[in-house]
Each structure stands twice: as structure tokens, then as C-alpha cells.
């Protein structure tokens, strides 16, 4: 767990996660990626609690890919916790969801999401979107963190 993490993928669907990771791997961005399966795991990871107790908090990830609809703690709640906490507020969060609901989008932006992406059904489009997100946030975007 001492390894530096660049991307945290919070996705309950293993299939979506696999496709996402595969797309990132193609452009060589998945080396420093951790996949978490629900919101509570994500919070444990970010705040070094639960099974991630002891994780060093000095280096926060460069990108948090967050699904909305997840068991236990959903993406919106994770987003709220992150953005209301001094230590995690600057982590770039990109919501990736199947739902194009206005309600979710409005709430996410109100909570300070950095980007909101509706997952395209088409594999080509999906892969392309994932790659572009990875490029932008890891290589182009600069954050005070890390």
C-alpha cells in the first residue's frame, strides 16, 4: 500500500471496471490504478480507515473516477464527503454514470464535482471517453496535490 496511486476507480460493476481498466491500459495509464467496489471502500481508502488503515495520506490520487449507483454508500455521498473535507477537497473527481438524470448532474455540480460524464453504451465511444479523461486529468491538468 505504499505504492503511489494516480487513479482511484470506484465502480461496483466489475464488467464496467474491466472495460475501463482495459481502455486505460491501452494508453498506459492503468499502472498506478486502484479499483474499489463501493462508496464505503472509497471513503476508507481516501481517509485511511477500515481495511486501508495505515495508508499514507501524503500523496492523494490525481483522479477519482466515481460511479453514482453503488451499494452501501453511493457516489453522491462519497462526493459530498470528499468535497466537504479539507484533506480531500482538491482531489479531482469525475463522475462516470450510466444515468443522464438532470437531478444527479445538478446535485453533483452543486457539490463541486470536477467533471460529469455519461458512459456511452458504444464500446468505441466509451473507450475513447475513458482515454481522453485519463489523458486530460493525469497529463494535462495540474493540481496542488502531489
Amino acid at each position: 500500500m505504499s505504492k503511489e496511486i494516480e487513479i482511484v476507480l470506484v465502480e461496483d460493476s466489475v464488467d464496467d471496471a474491466e472495460i475501463t481498466i482495459r481502455a486505460l491500459k491501452k494508453v498506459n495509464l492503468a499502472n498506478k490504478l486502484v479499483h474499489l467496489e463501493d462508496g464505503s471502500e472509497a471513503l476508507d481508502f481516501l481517509f485511511a480507515t477500515g481495511k486501508f488503515a495505515g495508508r499514507e495520506l501524503t500523496a492523494q490520487p490525481k483522479l477519482l473516477l466515481l460511479d453514482i449507483k453503488m451499494p452501501k454508500v453511493n457516489g453522491i455521498e462519497v462526493l459530498r464527503t470528499i468535497k466537504s473535507n479539507e484533506a480531500t477537497r482538491n482531489i479531482p473527481v469525475v463522475i462516470m454514470t450510466s444515468s443522464g438524470e438532470d437531478k444527479d448532474m445538478v446535485e453533483s455540480y452543486n457539490l463541486g464535482v470536477n467533471s460529469y460524464v455519461v458512459k456511452p453504451v458504444q464500446f468505441e465511444n466509451f473507450s475513447k471517453a475513458i482515454m481522453e479523461i485519463g489523458f486530460y486529468w493525469l497529463l494535462i491538468n495540474k493540481t496542488p496535490v502531489g
Binding site: S13, D15, D16, I19, S98, V121, Q122, F123, F126
Partner: peptide
Amino acid sequence: APLRAING
């Protein structure tokens, strides 16, 4: 979600 998986 499953459709994306099938397609993917």
C-alpha cells in the same frame, strides 16, 4: 450497464 458490458 449490462449492455455496455455485452457490447464492450
